[in-house]
Design a protein around this nucleic acid. Structure first.
Length: 193
DNA sequence: CGTAAGATGAAG
DNA sequence: TTCATCTTACGG
């Protein structure tokens, strides 16, 4: 059964453990999704809370549509749209545990900052970081994941419910008390505890 | 139009 | 804790 047939909160939770892959011309990078957040239609923190606009349109696309937006004038975040068309919901990918192409990830990350070295932990431990490391850009906005060079592969063994921590989301002021953030227990690659 | 806030990251 | 940096949403 397809993960995208579930409701948004279930998708956000079930996406933990999936491998996120980007095959680009520069090479392949991949990592395990260890942290996600859900953004729902009736949720004041959701970009699609009020109405459909040019910016949030991909959130209203069919499940699997990529939504890339710029934040704080300098960083980008990736989401995967969920639910049926015309429902503005999505899951934000917040952190990956890098598994493949670590050298390429580091090269990309260093190019975006003034640092000269980077630990594996700093490669993808945040929404803006993983976008850099994975070579994701605004061009991919509104593409469908099947046509984007991006892939998600289910884990061999589903992450146990007892290994999933649920908390409030990071960096928002509206809907700050909603428990829509999920991460893998004791995983050191999550952005924050 | 003018402007404030924003799903962040790095440095102090 | 502060700053860098800029698009978008929203009020006037």
């Amino acid at each position: 059964m397809n993960i995208f047939s579930l409701d948004t909160l279930s998708i956000a939770k079930n996406l933990l453990g999936y491998t996120f892959i980007h095959e680009s011309v520069e090479g392949k990078t991949a990592g395990i999704i260890v942290e996600t957040e859900a953004y729902l239609q009736d949720d004041p923190a959701c970009h699609a809370y009020r109405k459909k606009s040019v910016r949030n349109a991909p959130m209203f696309g069919k499940a699997g549509t990529i939504y890339v937006y710029q934040i704080y004038g300098m960083h980008f975040c990736v989401n995967i749209s969920t639910n049926q068309e015309d429902i503005g919901e999505a899951v934000l990918i917040r952190a990956l545990e890098p598994t493949e192409g670590l050298d390429l990830m580091e090269e990309r990350r260093l190019k975006h900052s003034k640092l000269t070295q980077m630990k594996p932990k700093d490669l993808c431990s945040g929404p803006g970081k993983l976008v850099q490391a994975m070579g994701i850009n605004k061009n991919m906005n509104d593409w469908h994941i099947l046509d984007s060079g991006l892939k998600i592969i289910p884990p061999k063994i589903q992450i146990a419910d007892s290994d999933i921590i649920t908390t409030v989301r990071i960096g928002i002021t509206q809907g700050a008390d909603l428990p829509y953030r999920f991460y893998i227990k004791e995983n050191k690659f999550v952005s924050k505890l």
